[in-house]
Design a protein around this nucleic acid. Structure first.
Lengths: 124, 124
DNA sequence: ATGATACTTAAGTGACGGCTTGACTATCGT
DNA sequence: ACGATAGTCAAGCCGTCACTTAAGTATCAT
């Protein structure tokens, strides 16, 4: 059950990071982080087809980075936090582990240094 | 020149996020964030060939997430901060923009509410 | 009702990604 | 010197990706 959770988590992260790994998709997030937009508004600055944008949006929605509703004939898109959170959390966790290790390493080195100092003093 | 910087930045982000978009590569980072390891040590828990790990390492190094030196016949790998920083910074910036917008939206809504209250008071 | 707008869907294409195998090199222990 | 260990390189396989075109559907304005 824990494994199941990890797998789901892993898949979620796959989707998030994959979604972020494309410049056009990041540009879409960029624009949406400044305010909601329709599909055509998103397509205009990118210089690609509407169809391409729709495909990007599918990837972004799967990653939990964007949400959208259609009212009438226009679909309005906006940022979703959950994907960004998942990415940020994962990054933060690894970083914490890694920095804690560097701290411990620093302590060990400092202790070794101290040992040397003591030794030197003893030898004087 | 600004554009050049943006392009380089974009390429860097492409590499970082692409590197993170694979479960095996994230597992490698996971292990390395707990301490340095050789290529074979990284391969063992993954159940893939050494060759595959070497390829993952190339991607990770390109993304600035891992560094490695070879001494004798063993290559020792450890985490690099620059890739993680780039990813974290980008995420943070979009998030800030987006939250600021939500704040402004909140203010606008609050002001509108206030207007209504004033109006009601005036009408009493 | 008709034309224009705003998507949506399906199919195809060329490039790239992750992985393997197999042959090779360099280094270590004895 | 010898076999075992640790990694490297090249080729190939198959699936996925980003994108396009082409043909739809639904909605809006007149």
């Amino acid at each position: 059950m824990v494994k199941q959770m990890l797998n789901q988590n892993a898949q979620q992260l796959d989707h998030v990071f994959r979604a972020l790994a494309d410049a056009n998709r990041r540009a879409i997030i960029d624009q949406l982080s400044r305010g909601p937009a329709s599909v055509s508004e998103l397509a205009r600055p990118l210089g690609v087809t509407l169809a391409a944008v729709v495909q990007h949006l599918q990837v972004l929605e799967q990653g939990g980075l964007v949400r959208s509703e259609k009212v009438g004939r226009v679909r309005t898109c906006h940022i979703e936090s959950s994907g960004l959170d998942a990415a940020r959390d994962w990054l933060g966790e690894r970083r914490a582990l890694w920095e804690r290790r560097l701290d411990r390493l620093g302590e060990v080195l400092a202790e070794q240094k101290q040992e040397k100092v003591k030794k030197r003093k003893r030898d004087e």
